[in-house]
Design a binder for these strands. Sequence first.
DNA 1: CTGAAAGCGCTTACAG
DNA 2: CTGAAAGCGCTTACAG
Lengths: 351, 351
Amino acid sequence: MAINENSQRSLKKKNNHRAVSIKDIAKAAGVHHSTVSRALRDGPMVKDETADRIREIAKAAGFTISAVARSLATQKTHLIGVVVTDITDPFHHEIISGLDKVAEEKGYSVILADSQGDPDRERRVVRSFRERRVDAIVVMSSRVGGRYTPELAELKIPIVLINNQLREGFVHSVNINNVEGAIAAVRHLIALGHRRIAYIGNENPVYSDAERLMGYRRALEEANIEVNQDFIVHSEFGPEGGIVAVRKLLAMEPTPTAVFCYNDMLALGVLKGAQEVVRVPEDLSVVGFDDLFLARYLEPALTTVQQPMWEMGKLVMELTLKLLAGQKVQRTMSVDGKLIVRASTAAPSQE
Amino acid sequence: MAINENSQRSLKKKNNHRAVSIKDIAKAAGVHHSTVSRALRDGPMVKDETADRIREIAKAAGFTISAVARSLATQKTHLIGVVVTDITDPFHHEIISGLDKVAEEKGYSVILADSQGDPDRERRVVRSFRERRVDAIVVMSSRVGGRYTPELAELKIPIVLINNQLREGFVHSVNINNVEGAIAAVRHLIALGHRRIAYIGNENPVYSDAERLMGYRRALEEANIEVNQDFIVHSEFGPEGGIVAVRKLLAMEPTPTAVFCYNDMLALGVLKGAQEVVRVPEDLSVVGFDDLFLARYLEPALTTVQQPMWEMGKLVMELTLKLLAGQKVQRTMSVDGKLIVRASTAAPSQE
DNA sequence: CTGAAAGCGCTTACAG
DNA sequence: CTGAAAGCGCTTACAG
């Protein structure tokens, strides 16, 4: 006790702006600062007694070790850079949540940057991540082109992509199984009795769109339904695009009786646009992709292909940390979606 | 040219894991590393010629300055820690987007942590921010109690809160004007002819709920409508809570003809739950708060009080950077919401 | 088990 | 305009 109090007293406050350092603690404890360093990371052999004393003093002084100094010394920051094209897209949130949870548990922090789909900003983000010496980078974006590949390639730190169309050899990636998901969705519609089924895609040239479209085609083909090119429309990303697209489809003759959408955001607009003129699902069945949290609350509740987003986020971070630990992991993992049938799909009404 | 090539050549690669440093560049350029440091930050007087040469060499060598070393030397990290209670709550996204945009423009990075509403995790997050020596912390959460106030208080770095109920003296905050927003919402219902108006609140004991409830009361009082305590229900946060609450209300006798919800997430459930038994807005008008992006796409589109979230995010970051620049700013700022009338509200039907 | 030294990669007075 | 030195706050062989 007496010792402790003395120690605290001798810990004279430095000029405002200097946080208390390991050396201050060392002085107070009457040991070398390297000993303090050891004691604080419990690990390396330090006599229990000294270690305890040091820890007490440190605690009393409100000492928090400097991660920046440690990073400089160890050449590791325990920082994971995460690039998102648009943090406003609900698709990303659960993934980030999953990522962040695992990171936090393992003592890593996530540094987030929203590129807003702007290639210049993306460049700056990657540059900033480099300067900050992040240990690894996760890229989450279905929209971005391969444009900044070169910057990423130079980095020689682990890069992990989620549902990305960058599929070069140098990166690791986790992807949803788009083809199978789309097949499940369209088979469901066919099983309900639909023959005139449309696809509303993402006009951005992304693999995920091509793959979901491919699944759509396969499902139709296996049911011997001819693919009608007019029923394949691509529109601007987001709900507004869905509204525009469904209006176009409903103006056709004959009209489709069902539509499979690239994702839920599009389906959100489709539902809205369709219900201005017809009933869903009586006149038009609608299927989405993703299963955003809101899907179940829509009117009617949306049938969709669920992506296990939270799990994907966890998976990606686990994979990233394994890479950091030098473990070998497979370059590409794919996870399966799951069709969730709700109220937005039904048998076509007899005409 | 020749010089340049020679320089590059003399830049011998070090052992894999060491990035090229300012000293490597200095050696290649035949100058002291302090000169390189100056040249790279253009500012401090260096002969243009030398500066250019240094920059060329640095570029050719793929040099990126180490923010961690710089941080250690300058005692600034240009890192802003952002704590969110639940990154999955759509309310936060646009705010983060606004925050991030401003931060990025000013050379700051955002380090994000999701506390999941778990006080322990929140503690760890704050501790981690401390260790990383973030320059400032932004706390975004309407749910968290004052529990970690002490940790934050010790930090002696700027703390800025958004819509938070922590309203101690030591922090700065930006808040939506809850009372006025709620008054606008309820006045709108009254103007439509409603007299039996219910309030569905957030069961978590937060200021924002108390304030919106107060606005609700005031609006009723100014119209000489007696407040019916049965019409004030508090439920679990989120859409499910809204479903439960509206069922309860619709089982009353007489039933309310309109309901003002604490926020859009609750309203989302209310819309869903209500439409299982009555028509909206014919039998029940519904008003939300926030104007999440999805509000306009609901069926019927949701009347709600819009919070300028993106602007609030920007505002908060601007305020934070001002604090960092040592400028004086007011402790508290409040921004006004704006009633957006859509299809979920109408005059009560004659009974 | 502990100390002393060197090093991580920058910045910044201080001289010249 | 440039160099040399000291310092930021840690870690980690190397001795003892």
